[in-house]
């Protein structure tokens, strides 16, 4: 909207003030604080760290960073070749990235044909099917994870174990809960809608006439899929994958409830350092590294995800 200059300036200032101020105070400043705390030394106080930035008695700012947390992460990387060395952070990173990647892959394999099928359904049922995908998403996340706790329970009262025992397929209940398999199932279950929605948004725009034209030109179904459907839904694949991968890397609740003590993931590491261990500089350093690692995926999501958030409606 083009308006004469004078009230543009005044109106713009006030309309822009609130969101800018909010973001600077509650997003940008906290982020600067994470960096600050990650370079500070732990201290038995409230809060449990001493900032590297201090105002000396001479009225000058002093900068004395303590890079211990980063050094620990680096040392673990350096000890990669030594077998049996204790590498709690590296192991957590490995678990997180590996499980996040696996979750993404499984979601894609389940979600792509699923989204495709919805997109090719009649227009009326499409809306209803989409609503059915979203419905669990609107109910409580914790309760959905809890549902898997009762399904996967490793004792004889676990629902799956009950069923298998009753069928006579097993003699002893299987240890289904508290391992990385349980975490994977929980994450796929929780993040599947994030994959389906962007995929659907792109697949539904796919013009059926293109497929008919390809068929008319003699292409076999596999060729049509590889040369038309897949390239035209590529952006949806990238957006959906990133929407699953990014939160999966930082996930805390699912590994905590379904993974038990064995599956240490990086989200839990931050949580433990922040909570029981009271090592805030370490938690902050891990968060900084996490953000740095996720910049690539976030950029990918930015570039390919334009259609994704709108489809949340």
């Amino acid at each position: 909207m083009k308006l004469p200059r004078l009230f543009l300036l005044r109106g713009r200032f006030w309309a822009g003030f609130l969101p800018w101020a909010w973001l600077l105070l509650f997003f940008t400043l906290p982020f600067a604080l994470i960096v600050d705390v990650s370079l500070s030394s732990p201290e038995l106080s409230v809060p449990p760290y001493v900032s590297p930035l201090s105002l000396g008695p001479d009225g000058q700012l002093h900068w004395s960073p303590d890079a211990t947390p980063y050094r620990r992460l680096r040392d673990e990387l350096g000890a990669l070749a030594q077998p049996g060395a204790d590498r709690p952070y590296l192991a957590a990173w490995g678990n997180s990235l590996g499980l996040a990647a696996l979750t993404t892959a499984v979601c894609l394999v389940i979600g792509y044909p699923f989204a495709y099928q919805i997109a090719r359904s009649a227009e009326v049922s499409r809306q209803t099917l989409l609503m059915l995908v979203m419905l669990p998403f609107w109910t409580s996340f914790l309760l959905r994870v809890y549902a898997w706790m009762s399904l996967l329970d490793s004792s004889e009262v676990g629902l799956i174990n009950q069923a298998l025992l009753a069928a006579g397929w097993i003699e002893e209940p299987l240890p289904l809960l508290y391992n990385s398999g349980a975490v994977l199932v929980g994450m796929v279950y929780s993040y599947l809608p994030f994959m389906v929605l962007p995929l659907y948004a792109h697949l539904v725009k796919l013009d059926n006439r293109l497929l008919e034209a390809a068929r008319d030109l003699g292409a076999r179904p596999a060729v049509i899929f590889l040369s038309i459907t897949l390239p035209l839904s590529w952006r949806g694949i990238v957006a959906g994958s990133m929407m699953v991968f990014i939160p999966a890397v930082g996930e805390f609740v699912i590994p905590d409830l379904l993974g038990g003590g064995d599956v240490m993931m990086i989200g839990r590491r931050i949580w433990d350092d922040f909570g029981p261990n009271q090592d805030w500089p370490m938690a902050a350093a891990v968060a900084v590294v996490m953000v740095l690692l996720l910049i690539g995926p976030i950029m990918l999501l930015r570039r390919h995800g334009r259609a994704a958030p709108g489809s949340l409606r």
Binding site: F26, F27, L29, P30, F31, L33, I34, D36, V37, P47, I246, P247, V249, G250, E251, F252, G267, I270, W271, F274, W280, A283, A284, A287, M290, V291, L294, I298
Partner: peptide
Amino acid sequence: LPEVVIGLSLVLL
């Protein structure tokens, strides 16, 4: 961004 990161940053604030 992962919620853990946002949560931590706001705690620090």
